[in-house]
Design a binder for these strands. Structure first.
Lengths: 192, 192
DNA sequence: CGATTCTTTGAAAACAGTCAATCTGTGTGG
DNA sequence: CCACACAGATTGACTGTTTTCAAAGAATCG
């Protein structure tokens, strides 16, 4: 489990073996079951999480009880609620496992220390943040401008691998459309 | 015009006078008229821009010709297309003046040098990026979960000062609703 | 002051959402 | 190993809202 992470760091961040060891050994491994929460509304996000295997979703619940999904995270990606983590204040969102998942986690003090000690990790981190912002900006634009059908096609294009792993109601909650509309779209596409 | 910027840096970034001078003197001042573009789809975003006065909007145009607004920037805020700026590649968006505006601009090489030379500026920069990400995540969530009426109320709450400065069709393009719906909402609220 | 831009309104059509029932497949516990 | 329960998917009928198209009046910019 650690080794999958080390391979990831090696190929994506270009760190030295010694640096990678330092980062790995500061992590705690953890395994969670389907539907288990790693962050709950009202709590403070105390860890940075790397997903070795499995699938997580970040979602919020509004007044009428409906769930809306901000993000999916799958193998070899990171997840957290940045706002809550950065300022160590209560979050508005939840992070839960869609599938049984294997995680590595760092507390904020531990990771902050690593960032100071390892400039290349800091640089890699900034790059990840920039990517994540870019994606969220892109998604906001789609959310503003696309029809439900285009949103679905976009999703299929961007996350072909997630399609089979997610129940449709979660895809609908991610796209901001109703489950009914999503089934209608899929039905219409079969005819093509 | 420079002095308004220096006051801003002084109160928000906590830099020394010498650092502030260095930053100011690397900037180019520029004044633009209503509807003038400072970035156009297909171009590379070559500058980081600070808005001394006025109002800008960042928008994209989709296949059917409709305009969707990602962001407004007003006095004492920064604007650019980060994706295009970071990688110096063509942008998908446009940035145009809603009102006559006064800008300060830095080229990427110039600003990158400042970031290296002035660690406090780097830190301040990271903070601005984090804030902007947080806002865009928040907005994505609203866009997914709120009704048109809630979106409008949110906008009024967040940007009370912009309300009178923007034509309604731009507010609608920002909220992702039709102009007709926006007028309906406003009409309904008068009755309360 | 003239021209453009902006706002409001109406009528009609399109679309997505809600509610409710049924069907399917999967997995768990007996 | 089977039966049952449960989560997920699909469908139908209906409702309500939003959009589209179009026109006219109001306000604002240059």
């Amino acid at each position: 489990m650690i080794s999958a992470f080390e391979t990831y760091l090696h190929t994506h961040a270009g760190l030295t073996g010694e640096e990678i060891n330092r980062i790995s050994s500061a992590a705690t491994a953890r395994s969670i079951r389907r539907n288990e929460l790693i962050l709950q509304e009202g709590q403070v996000c105390r860890h940075k999480t790397f997903l070795v295997s499995g699938l997580l979703r970040t979602y919020g619940i509004v007044a009428d009880g409906s769930e809306h999904i901000l993000q999916f995270a799958s193998e070899n990606t990171w997840t957290l609620d940045a706002e809550s983590y950065d300022h160590q204040k209560p979050t508005l969102f939840n992070i839960a496992a869609v599938e049984r998942s294997e995680l590595l986690q760092w507390t904020k003090p531990a990771f902050d220390r690593l960032l100071l000690e390892i400039p290349a990790l800091k640089a890699f981190s900034e790059q990840l943040i920039a990517n994540s912002n870019h994606r969220s900006r892109q998604r906001l634009f789609t959310s503003l401008s696309a029809t439900p059908e285009e949103k679905y096609e976009d999703f299929v294009r961007l996350f072909p691998d997630l399609l089979a792993r997610l129940p449709l109601h979660m895809i609908a909650a991610y796209l901001g459309i109703s489950l009914k509309t999503l089934t209608r779209i899929r039905h219409a596409q079969l005819k093509r």
